[in-house]
Nucleic acid binder design. Structure first.
Lengths: 138, 138
DNA sequence: CAAATTACATAGGTAACCTATGTATTTCTA
DNA sequence: TAGAAATACATAGGTTACCTATGTAATTTG
């Protein structure tokens, strides 16, 4: 199978996985965001939107929800009165831990059903997905 | 990193990829469906819903759209007057080819930016995603 | 043959996106 | 250094893709 076919399948199967997980475990957009904050530390709205590949208004709304949930805090950026700084809260970190455990257990169980899939394969899959999104989307 | 952590990351990154692709290349729900029909041949609404992990009403609506686009045909099932048979049309097959080429080129280009990611890695990633979704979601 | 099951359709509602546009602040430039 | 351009967000309005609940017709079962 060509790289091109594989790449196309990657997308379709990724889409299917996301929907399957969303159905049985909940995968709100906020999860991606607190995950980003955990990885990068405090960020502005636009930075978050860029990292998550969504529009700025979408991120504004998503962050507003997270603030309401108490999972992040939003303060004006002291160095730039236009901007804000979104920070992961302790509650948010707890939530992230919970979500990760839920998803982890569930997906790991599915992976375990396939003896031909090793931990290394799983790591490779994550690396591919991560790599595809890194930097240059020219 | 544990299997559980990896599995959790798999989901989040998959979600991010799907949204990134949806943004710049279009990834309508119909794509997944014609992809299923291509893989399995003609199917009923409920069968499609099960395979795509969505509800039956969702699939009904999605198929209705596809019929309108001319990418599939819907005929009553001759063996069971309750059911219908959804079949991929020639136009649908063409569209699938187009979509695959678009996605393939785009994602393959991104993969190519990462010399450490081989075709084999890509194949592994697809196998993992496919495996995770296969059969038993008990 | 009545009851349960199955295959869809319809109705109504939500989450997560988007583009277009407005506003305040900061940076660039002539 | 004043005015123009750019930047960081917010708001408004709209779409897509889902969902659950429920109704209907046809099939299978007891």
């Amino acid at each position: 199978m060509s790289d091109s076919e594989l790449a196309s399948d990657l997308v379709v199967h990724a889409a299917r996985l996301v929907r399957a997980v969303r159905r049985e475990l909940e995968l709100p957009a906020g999860t991606r965001i607190i995950s980003l904050l955990d990885e990068h530390g405090p960020l502005g709205i636009t930075q978050l939107a860029d990292l998550d590949r969504c529009s700025q208004p979408t991120m504004s709304a998503a962050v507003a929800q997270l603030v309401e949930s108490g999972w992040v805090t939003k303060k004006p950026n002291p160095d730039d009165a236009r901007g804000t700084v979104v920070t992961l809260s302790g509650t948010g970190r707890d939530e992230l831990r919970r979500v990760r455990r839920r998803h982890g257990e569930r997906v790991a169980a599915l992976v375990a059903q396939h003896p031909d899939l090793t931990t290394e394969d799983l790591a490779t899959a994550v690396a591919v997905l991560r790599g595809v999104l890194q930097e240059g989307t020219p």
